[in-house]
Amino acid sequence: MRRRRARTGTLLAAAALLAGLLGTGGSAAGAGGPRGEALVHAAAAAPRNAVQGENCDTGTSLPPRQQVGARIQEIRKRGYLIVGVDQSAYNWGYRDSQTGRIEGFDIDLARAVARSILGDPDKVRLKTVATADRVKLLQAQPQTVDLIARAMTITCDRLAQISFSAPYFRVSQRVVAPKAAHARSVAEALGGKRVCAALNSSSHNELKADPHGAASVVTPDNQLDCLVLMELGEADATLSDSSLAAAMVAQDQTMELAGESFLPTYMGVGMNKNDTDLVGWVNQVLVDWRNSGAWQASYDRWLRPGMGDPGPYRPW
């Protein structure tokens, strides 16, 4: 049943994508409208990037449509959008200590949503949230954030509790290790080593399921703590999402992404399950973001220096 639905979604997504490419997707009350509750599979157009689902489809979301519902009304009444972000993920969502502003790829996306709903990219209030609080904050009543743009991977567990936008980035697990270690594969980079991963991250879960030969595993609260531990010689390698792995390498030129990437997943914008109007709206923003070249521009500004060619990271 789920599989068939996903396949339908794939076809619809291809149609939506085509519509987007033809320039019709950007209009208000957009392409997904007439199709009602049909699902969109954003990855359909690029099978080489397909993510292996666990037992759900992490690439699907509501169709893009800009229709004003309860949540959008509330945001417009309030006059600003509240977005949960990170302030320590370099180039994704981080506070520039010179300007004091939070900036990065995820922040560009948050501002694009604010401009779309309120006509001004600055009508946004960025609220730093902890990794562990993300799902809880979206479910809490009264809801203190509208959406969360914080390098959040779409998982089946989370899909059961909150809604996600269509994927806007494709990540996988990567190993960060000192260049001096000359590791050519994941097995080489982790085998017999003291491996670090952020507590309760997907990387931590992966190491619990398969230690990849690690001699020991240390789990601080944040993946940046892992970089400190490696610099101080208290850990040999770090396993992390490729997004944050790239952020680590960007801050320390003596580190590199070692070996192959594995376990591909999607990143999406997290929202409350009831805010279907917002989910559809954000999906439309994502279509516009991609088509206008803004996704590419943000990638070039923040991520290309550390991650290179965007090919492996495009979710479509």
């Binding site: 320590s88 370099y90 520039d96 200590s97 944040n222 940046l224 703590d225 101080l232 801050q251 320390d252």
Partner: peptide, 16 residues
């Protein structure tokens, strides 16, 4: 020093 370069890694060092 890292903080003055504008890198979030500085905060992690301070925590450490």
């Amino acid at each position: 020093a890292i903080n003055r370069e504008g890198l979030p890694l500085g905060g992690a060092y301070l925590r450490y």
